[in-house]
Structures are given as structure tokens and as C-alpha cells.
Simulated scan of single mutants.
Amino acid sequence: MLLEMAAVCIPFMLGSIAYFFPFNTCYAYGTIILQQIKLNYFGVRFWFHDVVNARYNKLDLPLMPEKTAIITGGSRGIGARIVKKLLQCDMNVILACRTVSAGEQLILQIRKSGVISGRPKVYKLDNSSLGSVREFAEQIKKDYSKIHILINNAGVMLVPTYKETEDGFEEQWAVNYLSHFLLTSLLLPLLKAGGRSGESSRIINVTSCVQYMGVINFDDINSCYKGTYFTITAYTQSKLAQVIFTVALQQFLKDRALNVETFSVHPGVVNTELFNHTYLRGSWVMSLAKTPDEGAIPILYAALNKDIENKGGIYISNCKEYPNAAWALQKNIQKQLFELSLKQVKLHDFFQYL
């Protein structure tokens, strides 16, 4: 209904704006309005999806003392809840976070809450810096011989103004997608060592339902058209890229007979700091959203559940499999995204470290 209304209203609004403003201004306003309507539509639709499927969003935590897991963005929000639950599984848990002191403080809080199992360790990782990604990976390779679970969780959402990272990339593209693309490649040797037949290592890409409204604009990957920054476009593009990456990488891993599988996960509409840059933060609407604990469950399901062994490449929401976005299944898009990503992170081959 919202999209149908937009189809009627947007042309009228643009016509009104065009009477007073030049074309570029009209295009910018029209795009922003339409994107906001579509974002709200998907938010409401998948909030309802969370409510209807809440009964499936459950998971028993197995004991896995021999496993080692890495989670990026592990010091707050959903990431912090994942860390706590992985420690309850008695795992070795590596917190990769921008502020080491925040991660250390989280561990103290978890211990005070009564969770004494597991072996946590905090490392510095700034996902807005590809140099930091490389430094983190090198340190992990020195300290560990194998990794069983990599949860690419760190992210930013709907930042209000255009910002480039030190490497020259739009912030949401770099943090949400590109840094994790590089990190996964660098850690593949350890993930390969951690997997075995019937018990593969797992790569979890934390994405969003907005993958369905995303488009990869290879001509304007920074989502800044003639000086106007489209933050919704940038965010949805980064989330779609994660899903395309998941699907394409799974096929590459299968072709090489590696015991490593990839999954993309929508945690749900969750009340976390990610909404700080939106008008919803602090409103009564967010009280209807999932809690961070509830948002952590489908991610943990993808990381731990045995029933999805040999189902790599799937998209998970509320501990159930759902279709990937149509864009993610197009081989030419997968190929183009991989080629661009390799160029941006300065790799000649995604598997060059194996």
C-alpha cells in the first residue's frame, strides 16, 4: 500500500518542487523521499515478520569448549549479547572492537553477571580502516592456529552526512561490507584449519532485510550523486553486498572442497544504538522492536545449529531460511562485485593466503 501511494504522490511532489528548483535538486529530494518511504515499508513489514515468527526465534546453547569464535563489533549492542552467549557455550571468544577498553569492560560485566565459562580475549579492530583489518588478522594468525566461527557483525547505519574512510571509501560501504570482505580472505587459512567433514567452519555475515531494496551502483559506489549523499542508498547497498558476497563465496568454497560455509543473517528489527541516526531512536516505536538478546539468537543459530550443515549460502531470519535477494543470485553481479572488491582491498585473488 505504501509503495502504491508513493507511485502516485512522488510525481506530484516532484512536479511541485520542479516548478521552483533545478532538476538536480528535484532528483535529490525525490530520491530521498522515495527511499524513506521504502525503508519504512520494509521496517514495518519485517517488524510484523518478527512478531509472527517469534516462536521460532529460539536456540539451545551447546557446550563447545574446543571451538574458537571471532565476532567483530563485539563490545556493544547485539555483538555484546553474542559474546555472552558464546562464553556460555564455553568457547574461546575473540572480541574484535574499535575500543579495547570497551571490550574489556564488557567482559567484566559478563563475569559479574555470573557467566564464568569460556575464555574471552579482546583485540583492536577498526572496521573503517583496512590497515587495522590487516593488523588484526596478522595478530590472530600469530596467536591462533585455527578459527571455527567468524561473525562479521560490526556495522553502521544511516549515517547523516557523507564521510570517507582513510582508504577513500564511503563509511557504510567500508565498515559494513568491504572490511569484512578483506578480513574473511585474510582469515581463510585459519577457518580452513578449523573445519572438517560434517562440521564445517562458519562465516556469518550479519545483514538486514533491506537487502531486498538494495541495488549495487557500480558507477557510484559511494552513493554521492553530484554532491548529494544518499545515506539510505548507501546502507541498503552495503547490506545487499554482504548477501551477494555470502552466496558467491559459498560457491567458491564448495568448488575448492573446503570445509567452510557461509551464511547471511537478518537479526530482526532490533532496538540498538544503530538507530541513533534515525528519528525512531528514543521513540515509543522502538519499544516494539526486538531486544538485543532476541536479535542475537538468529546469528547464533547460524553459527551453532547442526541442522544447517551443508546449507551454506542461505539467508536466515528468525532461525528460518528465506530467499536471498534476486540480485544476489545473478552470476554477473557476483563476478562484478568480487572484481571491484578485490581491487578496492588490493588483493589479486580472494584465496591467495591459502
Rank of each mutant, 00 (worst) to 15 (best):
Y56F: 15
F46D: 10
T184V: 05
V159L: 14
N176H: 09
K226E: 12
A154D: 11
Y229T: 00
W173P: 08
K84G: 01
G313V: 04
P292I: 11
E309M: 06
P323I: 06
T233N: 12
Y235Q: 01
N271G: 02
V52W: 09
L130W: 10
C319N: 14
I140S: 01
C89N: 12
S117L: 14
M157Y: 14
A303C: 11
V51A: 06
L178R: 07
L182K: 10
E135I: 04
E135W: 00
R81E: 15
L63T: 13
N92A: 03
L240F: 00
S264Q: 04
G214Y: 00
Q250F: 07
T291D: 03
A96H: 04
Q35D: 12
N332P: 00
K346D: 14
A257R: 14
A80T: 04
K290F: 06
L190K: 03
Y177G: 07
G195N: 08
T262S: 15
N127A: 12
G227W: 06
F21S: 13
S223A: 15
K320A: 12
M5W: 05
P62W: 09
L342N: 11
G227F: 02
I82S: 04
S283H: 04
V159Q: 13
S179P: 12
V260C: 04
V175D: 01
A154V: 09
L274D: 01
F46S: 09
A154E: 11
A241G: 07
F218M: 10
N276A: 11
T231S: 14
G227V: 05
Y41Q: 08
A7F: 00
F218H: 09
I149H: 03
L340M: 13
